[in-house]
């Protein structure tokens, strides 16, 4: 490395360090979704935050380099002249690959650990393996509130097998509870996306797709369909999902049960026939 190299590198390095500090500071001010309604959304928010913080210096470094070379290394004279004939620097290449590999490994490790957390200390449940084996709450999978999410063109309905399989057009969840969603569909693919809860799972006909959430804060959330499911896909949204206190939930579910007397559906059925016939808003 000669002197010119060192001058350019030093300038870039200083500018990069200064701008990165500012950039990371700004990045830390950004509020990223999905929020803090569940442990999953907290995890996702912090992961998104972390990625933003990691990628900000990368972004700044690359942009700085492009701009710097566009200004510092441009042709000046009237006659085209050639740059120095450098064909490569093996050590620099190895270092670069090593650094990207470390960043990648780091992200993968964080992602995988986040993944095991979001499954809330269970092994990964294959969607097929649990089909029909879960008779009622708390047998196969610990103390979790079971909720079956049924996608259909063009709304979601929710069944609570723990409470006799009653069905609601809006998703109501108690706070401080581990919840196990069983997502299925009656017609085409949908994707159950409870935005603030940090949950997304595709609804496939004939498949029981399981996903978990642990609520920690009360509040309302929005449920959307995130997979193209036909012409009213854009309207398949319900802003009235709610996480409520456990007492409120008990009151609410009792009321729903009272309104829904006399249904006798199997607690789970991947093939689903909606009940009651009127659904959604």
């Amino acid at each position: 490395m000669n002197r010119t190299d060192r001058t350019h590198a030093l300038r870039l390095l200083v500018a990069w360090a200064v701008l990165s500090v500012i950039g990371v500071f700004i990045a830390l001010q950004v509020h990223l979704p999905p929020g803090d309604q569940s442990t999953q959304s907290v995890d996702e928010t912090s992961l998104l935050d972390l990625m933003l913080v990691i990628s900000t210096p990368v972004f700044i470094g690359v942009v700085l380099f492009i701009l710097y070379s566009a200004f510092a290394f441009r042709q000046t004279g009237a006659v085209l002249e050639d740059g120095p004939p450098n064909h490569g620097n093996f050590r620099l290449q190895v270092a670069w690959v090593a650094i990207t590999a470390v960043i990648v490994l780091l992200l993968a490790v964080i992602g995988i650990s986040g993944l095991s957390n979001s499954a809330a200390a269970t092994t990964f449940a294959s969607s097929q393996a649990t089909l029909g084996t879960v008779g009622s709450a708390g047998t196969a999978s610990g103390h979790r509130l079971q909720v079956q999410v049924i996608g259909q063109q063009w709304w979601f309905t929710y069944r609570y097998p723990d409470f006799g399989g009653v069905e609601s057009a809006h998703l109501m969840l108690p706070v401080d509870t581990n919840i196990e969603f069983h997502v299925t569909s009656t017609d085409v693919l949908h994707s159950f996306w409870a935005y603030q809860l940090g949950v997304k799972a595709d609804a496939n006909p004939g498949v029981d797709n399981i996903t978990y959430v642990s609520t920690v804060n009360t509040g309302s959330f929005e449920v959307r369909c995130a997979e193209l499911c036909g012409i009213w896909h854009g309207h398949m949204a319900d802003p009235n999902g709610q996480v409520v206190s456990q007492a409120d939930f008990a009151t609410w579910i009792a009321q729903v049960q009272k309104d829904d007397v006399g249904i006798s559906l199997p607690p789970y059925s991947p093939i689903y026939f909606p009940h009651p016939p009127v659904k959604g808003s």
Binding site: P34, L48, M51, V58, F59, G111, G114, L115, K200
Partner: peptide, 17 residues
């Protein structure tokens, strides 16, 4: 860079689709 955001499963939960 945005692709990296999408590649991690937990962040993909929010960003997918």
């Amino acid at each position: 860079l945005s692709g990296v955001f999408l590649s991690d499963v937990p962040s993909d939960v929010t960003l997918h689709g």
